[in-house]
Amino acid sequence: MSISVRRGRRRTAAVAMAALLLAGGAVGCGSEKSDEAGDDMSPVAAVKKAAKKTEDLTSFTFRMRGSVPEDGRVRADATMSTKPLAMQMKMSAPDQGPEKIEIRYVDGAAYIGAGEMAAKEMDGKSWLKFDAKAMEKQAGKGAGSSVSAQADNNPADQSSLMTGSKDLKKVGSETVEGVETTRYTGTVSLDRLRKLTEDKGGDAATKKRREKSIKQYEDMGLKKLTMDMWVDGEDHTKQFRARGKGDKGALNMTITFLDYNKPVHVEAPPKDKVMDLGQEMKGLEG
């Protein structure tokens, strides 16, 4: 496989993992405190309650539509399990090229499938394998690091983000995918989120994950986020939207949840169809 093809596939993988990061990081939005008043919950209390339910999810099916800084438009449909971590996503990044790719994460490895067109340039192999730890040792930041970041990303890890907003409010009732929901919205700066995390970060592991989530937004060149959350009648997050503008471009991503807590079964691609990118990089070093 030529160096240019390798670079192209790694670029595609990076776009995919940036999108996946948002899926994993933006589901739960809660707070350490609530200001619940009787049966009529405040926006903070309602969002916190939805976040608590998110923490109990073991799997979900979701759809992503929008754009991310530098990489442009992203469309994805996925099913993901958190215990154990497994994921299957089909996506496209039209501004990066016409290819439609599939991502699978299973048994600690990520596989990027780009179809038969890629196979013509990869000795008949239509899948690239990323071993997160090996990639980080050999390449530092990049596609491998993105895989690793997602593997360590639980849907409830950013549970404090939305209620870091000083202007969190209830917008009203809206129908999403045929389901009646209540929409909440708010804005918050990443500086404020970082300060809240440092002041009230909880245990060390939770604090570390939250700091990582904030840094990933900062790496996109963002300083401020506008968030919208749609909560259904069972207090589940039905839809979430994150928007922001920075020196690297605009973020505008909507994640819609279609199902919860259903069995997820993901299989690794056939070995004879897989090219191990870690081994390829060792060859380049040689």
Rank of each mutant, 00 (worst) to 15 (best):
residue 83 K to P: 14
residue 92 S to N: 08
residue 90 K to P: 01
residue 90 K to I: 02
residue 94 P to N: 07
residue 96 Q to G: 08
residue 89 M to D: 02
residue 87 M to E: 13
residue 96 Q to M: 14
residue 109 A to C: 02
residue 92 S to Y: 01
residue 103 I to T: 10
residue 82 T to P: 13
residue 99 E to P: 09
residue 102 E to S: 04
residue 86 A to T: 10
residue 85 L to H: 10
residue 85 L to P: 06
residue 101 I to Y: 04
residue 85 L to M: 15
residue 100 K to W: 00
residue 100 K to S: 09
residue 93 A to D: 03
residue 93 A to E: 03
residue 84 P to H: 14
residue 102 E to H: 07
residue 104 R to V: 03
residue 81 S to W: 09
residue 97 G to H: 06
residue 98 P to E: 12
residue 93 A to Q: 01
residue 108 G to K: 07
residue 90 K to G: 00
residue 106 V to R: 07
residue 83 K to W: 03
residue 96 Q to R: 09
residue 86 A to V: 15
residue 100 K to F: 02
residue 105 Y to Q: 06
residue 87 M to L: 12
residue 84 P to T: 10
residue 93 A to Y: 00
residue 101 I to L: 07
residue 105 Y to N: 05
residue 88 Q to F: 13
residue 106 V to S: 00
residue 109 A to H: 02
residue 96 Q to V: 03
residue 81 S to M: 13
residue 99 E to Q: 14
residue 82 T to N: 12
residue 90 K to V: 06
residue 102 E to G: 03
residue 88 Q to Y: 11
residue 109 A to V: 06
residue 101 I to G: 06
residue 95 D to Q: 05
residue 105 Y to M: 08
residue 83 K to I: 09
residue 91 M to Y: 10
residue 109 A to G: 03
residue 82 T to S: 03
residue 86 A to C: 10
residue 88 Q to C: 01
residue 102 E to R: 11
residue 94 P to W: 03
residue 97 G to A: 02
residue 81 S to E: 09
residue 99 E to G: 11
residue 101 I to N: 01
residue 86 A to N: 15
residue 84 P to N: 15
residue 81 S to R: 15
residue 97 G to V: 05
residue 80 M to K: 12
residue 93 A to G: 12
residue 85 L to S: 13
residue 84 P to F: 03
residue 106 V to N: 04
residue 94 P to Q: 10
residue 105 Y to D: 04
residue 105 Y to H: 03
residue 84 P to W: 11
residue 107 D to W: 00
residue 91 M to L: 08
residue 99 E to Y: 13
residue 107 D to K: 08
residue 92 S to P: 05
residue 92 S to F: 01
residue 89 M to P: 06
residue 106 V to A: 06
residue 87 M to K: 08
residue 85 L to C: 06
residue 88 Q to E: 12
residue 83 K to E: 15
residue 99 E to C: 13
residue 88 Q to W: 08
residue 89 M to L: 15
residue 101 I to T: 02
residue 98 P to H: 12
residue 95 D to P: 06
residue 109 A to Y: 01
residue 80 M to D: 11
residue 96 Q to E: 13
residue 87 M to G: 06
residue 80 M to P: 04
residue 97 G to F: 11
residue 109 A to K: 07
residue 104 R to H: 01
residue 105 Y to K: 05
residue 85 L to D: 10
residue 80 M to L: 13
residue 99 E to D: 13
residue 82 T to I: 14
residue 97 G to T: 08
residue 91 M to V: 06
residue 95 D to K: 00
residue 108 G to P: 02
residue 87 M to F: 11
residue 99 E to F: 10
